[in-house]
Design a protein around this nucleic acid. Structure first.
Length: 121
RNA sequence: UCAGAUGGCCGGGUGACCGCGGGCAGCAAUGUUCGAGGAAAGUCCGGGCUCCACGGAAAUACGGUGCCGGUUAACGGCCGGCGGGGGCGACCCCAGGGAAAGCGCCACAGAAAUGACACCGCCUAAGACCCUAAAGGUCCGGCAAGGUUGAAAUGGUGCGGUAAGAGCGCACCGCGUCUUUGGCAACAAAGGCGGCACGGCAAGCCCCACCGGGAGCAAGACCAAAUAGGGACGGCAGGUUGCGUUUUCCGCGUAGCCGUCCGGGUCGGUCGCGUGAGGUGUGUGGCGACACAUAUCCCAGAGGAAUGGUCAUCACCGCGCAAGCGGUACAGAACCCGGCUUACAGGCCAUCUGACACU
């Protein structure tokens, strides 16, 4: 799975669809043409200083990465960028609950994307 | 046993499955091995390394350091001493050069704050006057003991002395100064001399001694799409046109397009990047910091940034009769090293001090 590395990719995702669910915030948008050969979903992780010190931020990103590696191959849509933003409770929430949060956020974001696509047509 | 002082150490362990980053082997699949800290933190000092600047050296300015000796690559670190202060003690604390080079400041209170001073007080001996004596009073005066203020008041205590007092005299203590002795030194001790002359602040300026060129791995080096502009060479087109040569003619110069190369350096990539003032053990020297010798080990190197998820079991702590449940600090390397400072659940070890008890 390809990870996002450019600041511009994160900014583009932040302007797209945003869902807050439990201990995570999900931001997503379409991958720009040509950026991801093969059409696999791309993913990025963010933890701001509001989360805590460096140890807390690292831990939050690791748990999000673990969750994404389980869920995105099943639920992710090709040709989309996903950004998982850590929240204050990301480091301490039970992992089952964290998985449920990410799943719910993905499904809700997909519904919103479909609705926007329908309006566009 | 209790209370305390100092120095040091640990910072959850083991196993299973699915994953992550680097090295090595391999065409690959894959295999194998290594993978955060005592502070990785704050970025406060000192160095290595890199680039820039610069005749050498010194001075001025600015900044830093500040008892003495040692240690170190170096330091504002560390070690050992000295001085001052605190504690019954083990031990702890100190921004600890110079105030007779100079300037400045010393609020409030107080009589007086440095050219020290006289508010309340103390005295009436000598001299003059009143009172014809005595006693007393007035003047001229003397004094700074006692009181009051303050962070600080021109040595302190005692005895003598005096009208009252005063280093006025003496003893001891303090201070200053000289000499001797001990010590590498800071300094200490002893003796002589001086009747006291010399208030505090240098963390206000300043003086003295010593140290310091600047910027930092986003340093710096290399490879190199694109693009702007430049250069060289070749080809095509052209003597029609524009511009310059004051005007006309002639002539000359210049302006176009394409390709290759040079140069340039952006996105990106590679290096810098971990064998080092390295760790560990042993020995020797030293009170110690540390040094030397020797053996042995290779121990993170990412670049949106690697350690996560699930489970079992053990250890410790809390709650609970129990089954069990919950918790396990502070905190994440980013060029490297030596320090300092700050944070830290819980636990361990060694040495020493005081008190009590027992032998």
């Amino acid at each position: 799975m390809q990870t996002l590395k450019k600041r511009a990719d994160f900014l583009r995702a932040a302007k797209g669809v945003r869902r807050v669910e439990g201990a995570v915030t999900l931001e997503t948008c379409k991958t720009p043409d040509g950026a991801a050969p093969g059409g696999a979903p791309r993913v990025g992780f963010t933890a701001s200083r509001k989360i805590g010190n460096a140890v807390a931020r690292n831990r939050a990103k690791r748990r999000l990465r673990a969750a994404a590696s389980q869920l995105l191959p099943l639920l992710g849509r090709g040709g989309h960028d996903y950004v998982l933003v850590a929240r204050a409770s990301t480091g301490t929430r039970a992992f089952d609950a964290l998985l449920a949060d990410v799943t719910a956020a993905l499904k809700a974001a997909h519904r919103q994307l479909d609705r926007m696509a329908g309006e566009a047509i």
